[in-house]
Amino acid sequence: MPLIELKNVSVRYGEIEALRGVSLSVEAGEVVTLLGGNGAGKSTTLRAISGLTKPASGEIIFEGKSMTGLGPEEIVRLGIAHVPEGRRVFPGLTAHENIMLGASNRSGVSKDQIDQEADAMFDLFSDIRPFQHVLGWTLSGGQQQMVAVARGLMAKPKLLLLDEPSLGLAPVIVSKVFEIIKEIRRRGTTVLLVEQNARMGLSVADRGYVLETGRLVVTGKPDELWNNEDVRAAYLGGHARTAAKA
């Protein structure tokens, strides 16, 4: 039984049909990457899973149970943590406080316990340890990304949704973020990763899906996808395809 399964999920934003009948699944322990250009529906897929957006039709099943009708606060309590696009670090709270709040979905944990766990996070994210008492809005993009991922891990998720962790980050920082994703994978957390940076996204994945204008077009192992022309086309457009052929 897959950990999570999307069955024919469609999402509309007013006039726009952002997802058109997407079906996919993630097995426990897997890292699965969703690829696709802007507006392909990658973020919408994650938003539908975490309850931020209500699907117009279709069903999402987590650990064998339908999540239809559940809101984001209930879904995160089931063990699905969503690290959204743009990081969304609370600007007026410190890095440490941001990370502590990641445990808000777990009941019956003492503040001291959370405090210690947050401290432990800085072992994995040692780059931001010096900034742990700095307000969120003053952190750089890379530091904010690390805070956001650490905050997501504090939920002790069964499934971690990562939306474009490389967004707007310099290559050296991107590599660091992906090192962390590999470490998360090693520790056995299931990850559904959305990435524009196809090479990086596939480098940590067991499997990948490619979305184009709200539909799944290709699925497969990282190597297969990397060599697939449709994947390149989804990113660089028809021009690159012809240019590459020529």
Binding site: P171, V174, S175, F178, K182, Q196, N197, A198, R199, M200, G201, L202, S203, P222, R232, Y235, L236, A240
Partner: peptide, 14 residues
């Protein structure tokens, strides 16, 4: 540009 969109080989640990 190709790197920016598809990711660079240098970064990929594959």
């Amino acid at each position: 540009v190709v790197t920016a969109y598809l990711g660079s080989d240098a970064n990929a640990a594959h």
